[in-house]
């Protein structure tokens, strides 16, 4: 495990342009928050959360992609590195990315709250759990597919499922609107408003944990 973490650490250090990209986007977001005239609530940070969760997914995918491109993955299969350890290490990296980017994102609502002189721990936690939860959800969906089919095919499958889910949520939302608000829609609205943030993060973390053994199983079935 330590060897794999070191390898990924070296890899990320060799890609400063990616970290610079994240820094640049962070600055742009910060600037947009500071200069906005509109009153911004913490819950309104969710589009940025979505963006950050995509970063997390992208970075996690990049590590796998590099492993495939360099044939390091094939090599790992010949070493004492067990399949479960390899997959676990990638999950650990995804967790690190999620928390790292989540923390970056909390800077923005923190600035907003301080500007409005209305700091509240509940809002702060909400701003942290939304991006982390979304990252967990994306990774939970993408990793099993990627470990089974490789990064290219896996990412395509992920996109298809992601779009289907988005369409499903949209249609479900419309249906809920027509029926004067269904349970699911009410739950999602409550999540967005931060009333049930804890449930949201628990569900996301549960899915993240559940997808780990699925990914290990998928990886074991993969041929090289």
């Amino acid at each position: 495990m330590k060897g794999l973490l070191l390898r990924d650490g070296y890899l990320l250090r060799q890609r400063p342009v990616l970290l610079m990209l994240v820094g640049f986007v962070g600055i742009v977001l910060l600037f947009s928050f500071i200069t906005t005239d509109e009153e911004t609530t913490v819950a309104n940070t969710w589009p940025f959360s979505a963006m950050i969760s995509l970063f997390t997914t992208g970075f996690s995918l990049l590590l796998l992609y590099e492993d495939e491109q360099n044939k390091w993955l094939n090599y790992c299969k010949t070493t004492p590195v067990r399949d479960a350890v390899y997959v676990l290490e990638k999950y650990l990296m995804a967790l690190i990315f999620s928390v790292f980017f989540g923390l970056i994102l909390t800077v923005l609502p923190l600035v907003v709250m301080l500007r409005q002189d209305a700091f509240a721990w509940a809002d702060f936690w909400l701003s942290l759990v939304i991006p982390i939860g979304m990252s967990f959800l994306c990774v939970s969906l993408m990793y099993p597919l990627t470990f089974r089919f490789g990064t290219s095919k896996g990412f395509l499958c992920f996109l298809v499922i992601f779009v289907l889910l988005a369409v499903g949520v949209f249609v479900g939302g419309l249906a809920a609107d027509f029926s004067n608000g269904g349970k699911v829609w009410k739950f999602l609205t409550a999540l967005e408003n931060g009333k049930k943030a804890l449930y949201g993060i628990l569900i996301a973390a549960g899915l993240f944990g559940l997808s780990l053994p699925i990914s290990i199983g998928c990886f074991r079935k993969r041929q090289f």
Binding site: M1, K2, G3, L4, L6, R7, Y10, L11, Q14, E66, N70, K71, W72, N74, Y75, T78, T79, P80, V81
Partner: peptide, 25 residues
Amino acid sequence: VVFDESYFPPSLTPVKLGNIMKHIY
């Protein structure tokens, strides 16, 4: 095992590679 093409990350040096491999074997 040795394959016909390089599978070590190109940005690493042999010293860093040794640091990684000591945790693998």
